[in-house]
Structure formats: structure tokens, C-alpha cells
Design a binder for these strands. Sequence first.
DNA 1: CGGCAAGTTTGCGCCACGACAAGGACGCCG
DNA 2: CGGCGTCCTTGTCGTGGCGCAAACTTGCCG
Lengths: 231, 231
Amino acid sequence: MADIDRSLVRSLPLFANMSDADIDRLLARASLRRLLIGEAVFEQGQKATQFFLLLHGRLKVMQVTSEGQQIIVRVVHPGDLFGFAQALQRDDYPGTPLAAAESLVLCWPNEVWGHFVEQNPHMAVNAMRTIGQRLQEAHTRIREMATEEVERRVAHAVLRLMDQAGKREEDGVRIDFPLTRQDVAEMTGTTLHTVSRIFSAWEGQGIVRGGRQKLLVRDRARLAALAEGEG
Amino acid sequence: MADIDRSLVRSLPLFANMSDADIDRLLARASLRRLLIGEAVFEQGQKATQFFLLLHGRLKVMQVTSEGQQIIVRVVHPGDLFGFAQALQRDDYPGTPLAAAESLVLCWPNEVWGHFVEQNPHMAVNAMRTIGQRLQEAHTRIREMATEEVERRVAHAVLRLMDQAGKREEDGVRIDFPLTRQDVAEMTGTTLHTVSRIFSAWEGQGIVRGGRQKLLVRDRARLAALAEGEG
DNA sequence: CGGCAAGTTTGCGCCACGACAAGGACGCCG
DNA sequence: CGGCGTCCTTGTCGTGGCGCAAACTTGCCG
């Protein structure tokens, strides 16, 4: 397998306090995989044999219900670990990560996880924190879905995307990957129709500007107000 | 602080492969607390200084929204660890665990967590798995809330309670702690009115039998069918 | 034993959203 | 440049379940 340059990961907080030698040792065990839009890193229910780190691009993690209904569980951003089912004592993957944009992924076999953690105890802690945050986010989402109306939920979702995948532009902040109305609907538990209507209304008020698979937030304050129910 | 007898915890899987001496050492650092119905172990947002193990009784973990809306995030059963925010690198508690029945709780100061884990590496793994499961459950709930109608969600919730807190009786399986319609509503993101109506309908079909803070499941199969959407 | 509080049931009206349906716009590819 | 697929918009209609309101039941406590 071709060598992977450590400059790829050097800047990630996850590797912040590792020596070059340690990083090289880890990268020696890794393989690199490039994904085109729409490709899956692995499939829900598949046996978990590897864990992953997203270097570049964007993944949406899907789950399907027995009836074929789809939802987006979360979005994976560059620098995020994902698919470490093994660490959670699962033997299959609970969801399917699809590339929403062309993406670059590091893959390690499960056995490496042990070394991974020994090599850098800081990392075990880091993984724990990551999971903790993820749990926290999940609970927040549950609370939103239980208590808030659709417009507020969508506002929250957009704010989150903005913070995690926002890119400053002259006229506002752009969500930095292709995002369909359908995607937003699947993140908030509604339909693309309703999302479309909401975006249209917001556009009329100058809060956002939409486009095919595009979204630009022009007035964060107004959006935050909507999210807090002061619509 | 009075000594705590190890017979209290000996039977828990969490301590399965620890020596008596190790257990005693851990218990020496613990304190025991009894909670009456309605009492809180700690409050949401409070600084996290301890972690806990439920020995007996039942806790419902509440979160309140900024508007005062309440939801039940999860139910803590005997043998469950809870409130280990520290392990997740949080410094405050994300929710409030209220005693749904009279309960008995073991409390350790945060500093012990390290020893706890060293003493029994199995335990770190166990904690990880616990969190993993919890995350998994959270995602399941999100998916349900996003895609299922109220009756199915309630059916799922009741099935879960049955499995985790069911007690065989002559006429079916009883949920083994006081559970109001309001509680079920807060677990499923609906109102007590709707839950009441649903229970009434089910009772008419002989699926359950209700009562003040009581619920008895008489026909698990029918309930499971409803949960799968074959109503 | 009688009264009170907490929990439950049920009816009614309304409305936010989902289902359905049709048409329009963007962008890719040959 | 023209055609097609994908994504988006907008209308109409129907309804699940929430809000509100009122009465009933159950268990507790004095």
C-alpha cells in the first residue's frame, strides 16, 4: 500500500500531541479511500471490520427503517472519527455513511484500535468525549423532535450545519456541501415539501437564499430567533 | 460513613469478575443514598462531582427546554451506571434523574473513576458498551420520532418498558414502577390526552389493562404488531 | 369517613403538516 | 444546443393529534 503522507493528518486536533514517528506508525497500517458522490463507505448491518477517519469531504449517515423510510442520523465532517462500532462492542455498523461530496477517508482494521489507544491515551479520552458529545446531540435532537414544531426544528438543523459546515461568503454563510431539501427533511423528520415551503418563506424575508442543492444563510440572528421560538 | 455490604452489588454483572477485596475497596469510597418518590439525585446543569449506580428502584431522567417543556430522556434501571458526565468530559449533568419509585443509589466522587477503571479494565469496556448502547437507543428513538405515528411510538415505548421493567403476573406482564400517562407522553413526544386515548382503545381490545399509575400488558404479540405498523 | 389532590377519561374544534398532484428550473451529458 | 434526469416549487385537500375544558376516579391523609 502506498505511503500516506503525515501532512494529511498533522493539523487534526486528534493527532495534536503525537510525534511524527507515532503518526507514521499509525498511517502505515491505514489505507486511503476516495469516494465519489453517492458512494457508501460501508452498509448498515454489515459486519464491522474497520474504523475510519474522514479527511476531506462530507458524509451523511443514513438509517433505513424496515418500511424503507430513510433518515439522516448525523453528518460526518472532516477530522471526525466514524464507524468505530468495535469500540462500542457492536459487531455490525448501525448506519450507512454516504458521500454527500467527493470524500477522502482513512481506514484502519479493527485490531489497530488497541494500539491506537495505547499509542496515545489522549486519544481514548478523545474518543470518549466524541461519543459523549454525540450522545448529547442525540438527546438534544430527541428533545427538539418531541417538543418543537417543524419550522423551529429546521431552523435548528440549519444553524447546526452552518456552524459545522459553514463557509463565509460576501453575502452570508454558505453550507459547504451539496444539500437537498430532501436531506434537510430527513434530518428533521418532515417532508421535502414542507422544507421547501419553509425555505421559500425564509427567502421572502431575506433570511436565507436557496438554490439547487445550495443554501446560504444571510441573517443568522433572525434564524436563531426562529429556532428559539421567537418567530 | 457506614460500611456498605458487598452483597448489595455482588450479583451485578458490572462486578462479576472482581474479587471481594476489590469490591470492598470500591465500596469503601462510596456513599449510599436513599431517595423518596419525586426526589432528584442531582439537577440538570449542576456541576458534576459524582457518578452513580442505581441499586434499587427506578429513575426517570428528565430534561427541560428553555420554555419549560419537559421530556423523559431515559429510564434508569437497577444495576445501571448513571451520571458519569465526567467520563464523557462534561463538567455538568445534562439531565435530572428523578425517583419514580423509592430508590437506593451508590455515589462515588469523580476522582474514583480512574481507580474504578484501573481496578477492573473490564469495567472501562463495560462503560463504553453502555454508552454505545445508549447512543444506539437514542438513534432508534430519533428514527421512531421522525418516521412513526404516535400510536406506534407509544407501542414501542411500552414494549421497551416491558422488557426492562416487566414483572410477570398471572394475567400478563406488569410495568414494575409507578408510571403516569404523562410520563409515557414525555417519553414519546405527545400529550397525556393522546396517550390516555390510545390506552383506552387498547384496553377495549384486550391488549393492555390500565390503572392509576399502572399498566399491565396482556397481549405482547398484538402490541408488537402495532409497533411494526401492522395495526 | 369525608375531602382533597393527583391522575385519568372523554368530547369538541381547530390547524399544522403530510399526502397527492402537477408543473417549472437547473445542470449535466451526449 | 437540445433532451433528460434530478431537484425544487406551489396548489389543494384531508386528517392526526394537540389545545382547551370539564367531569370522573382513585388513593391518601387528616
